[in-house]
């Protein structure tokens, strides 16, 4: 075990998987000599050479389209999209091509790859360096969507994604890239894609969250204990698709109260799906309406970022509403 940041966990997985499988290749804008604008690809070009880790021209559709071709031919591409906000030029390649190759070819041409991309607020990046586009991808059959919130999950989930047989959108919460440290197992290490993680056990109310919202929910839960005497359970969903329906339902059956917290615009965000699942499958357990705490339905602002992204206070106030619901 070594103490690492989430970013180092990512880097560790890339190095470990490149050592393990020579078909793994990493490319994207500025990932070579510059080692990524966040340095997620540190040492890759030094260790594995330009053949396996390189910077590409500035075309996201080119990056993902080329990755698709490589994947069809048997490589394991791990392309990087510099910011999730710039994934849209590649949207067609991802949604029309990568996601559908397996199905449309009757299983003859699967197209596994891992598209890594930093997402979310926290760096004062305004409209185009802050977005959380996960719902576009969870809405696309054929894609797995994974968002880690701890350094060890970052490593283990990324390793599983690279070894898996399906295309994965691997979204990295850039706000906590460096701020969060934790123990990360050395060498070969995987965390399975699918199961959620109970970040904190509790009995009174369930908080469902992922990525950079997990530490926010942890603070809110501490305050809820302290100020309201409420025992919050925090479920870090970490694999958005496939969804861990069982863990969600079990938690709600235990607590009877549920909130979903996410940064993306509230309407039609991933949390809406979680809320709908609970309504369909756990209505009888509910003692209060399911509440979504999300970003507002506006583009992501610059100066007013501080009121846009859910913070511990907003989550706390929502917990208070839910526990006070008569």
């Amino acid at each position: 075990m070594a103490t690492k940041t989430l970013l180092q966990g990512i880097n560790d997985a890339l190095i470990t998987e490149m050592e393990r499988d020579e078909n793994v290749v990493v490319f994207g804008e500025d990932v070579g000599i510059n080692e990524g604008v966040f340095r997620a690809t540190s040492d890759l070009q030094k260790k594995f050479g330009k053949k396996r880790a390189y910077s590409t021209p500035l075309t996201e559709s080119g990056i993902i389209g080329a990755a698709a071709g490589m994947s069809l031919y048997g490589l394991r591409p791990v392309p990087e999209i510099q910011f999730a906000d710039f994934i849209y030029p590649a949207f067609d390649q991802i949604v029309s091509e990568v996601a559908k190759f397996r199905f449309r070819s009757g299983g003859q041409y699967p197209c596994p790859m891992v598209i890594r991309t930093p997402y979310g607020g926290g760096i004062r990046g305004g409209l185009y360096h802050s977005q959380s586009p996960e719902a576009y991808f969870t809405h696309t059959p054929g894609l797995q969507v994974v968002i880690p919130s701890t350094p060890s999950d970052a490593k283990g989930l990324l390793a599983s994604a690279i070894r898996g047989d399906d295309p994965v959108i691997f979204m990295e919460p850039k706000k906590i890239y460096r701020s969060l440290k934790g123990d990360v197992p050395e060498g070969d290490y995987t965390v399975p894609i699918g199961p959620a993680r109970i970040a904190k056990h509790g009995t009174d109310v369930s908080l469902f969250c992922y990525g950079a919202m997990v530490p926010v929910c942890e603070t809110a839960a501490e305050k809820a204990k302290e100020k309201l005497g409420v025992d919050v359970e925090i479920v870090d969903l970490r694999t958005l698709y496939p969804m861990d329906e069982k863990s969600i339902i079990e938690s709600v059956e235990k607590t009877g109260r549920a909130l979903v917290v996410y940064e993306a615009p509230k309407t039609c965000g991933y949390g809406s799906e979680v809320a709908a699942l609970i309504a369909e499958r756990a209505l009888d357990s509910l003692e209060a309406p399911v509440v979504r705490v999300g970003g507002f339905d506006t583009p992501f602002p610059y100066t007013l970022e501080k009121i846009y992204v859910p913070d511990a206070l907003r989550v706390f106030l929502a917990i208070q509403d839910v526990v006070n619901y008569a």
């Binding site: 004062r124 990046g125 305004g126 409209l127 185009y128 360096h129 583009p299 602002p301 610059y302 100066t303 007013l304």
Partner: peptide, 16 residues
Amino acid sequence: YGNDQDHAMARQMPVH
């Protein structure tokens, strides 16, 4: 500065 005098209401990050 992203202040209230900005033509675009400080919605965009600097230099936009």
